[in-house]
Design a protein around this nucleic acid. Sequence first.
DNA 1: AGAGTGATCATG
DNA 2: ATGATCACTCTC
Length: 200
Amino acid sequence: MKRRLKRNFYLQPTLTVSKKLLGKYLVHRTKKGIISGKIVETEAYIGPQDKASHSFGGKVTPRNLAEYMEGGHIYIYLVYGMYWQLNISTAGQGKGECVLIRALEPTEGIQQMIKNRPKAKKRHDLANGPGKLCQALGFNKRHYGVDTVKNKEVWLEDRGQNFKKSDIIASRRIGIDYAEEWAKKPWRFYIKGSPFVSKL
DNA sequence: AGAGTGATCATG
DNA sequence: ATGATCACTCTC
């Protein structure tokens, strides 16, 4: 059973979407074939009050525009001059909220992932970080603003797996120490015991 | 623990 | 036009 996630999924509260995204599949149809992975780690960004969010204070720039799109669109950007970060916008148009996809368990197209990430030594190194999974699946600027509800190349999919609350760990988000008290919010979620998460 | 990397944004 | 910043990864 494979079912593409529809608009309503992304219009739920951002923290709900962040948790429900665990166990869903991120799929990229490329010229070299399908590359996909099961989502095992996410983070919620809930601007404009969330100091860690790019939409903090209601700021709008050319870069963060996609964070304000209607739920289900891709907000992708470059950090540290090297690494793409894939987010999915949530809430209605005009709301600066999104979910960062932080780690995947590789499923399809593993040979292609290995070619895309020659430095990865093991299967669990292929996509266990936000920059790594974009390399592995081949995501970059050309996916900016893409609507995953309708696009023919990129989408998210339910394959019938659901987790109990006790299978999900909530902890503080990574790499946002500048966000003061917001850095402490337990808005990073991952599947308990998964060897494919970015950090413990 | 430290370096690398360059687009983006605020400032002037 | 310039300089600081950065939701990371790799190598030591």
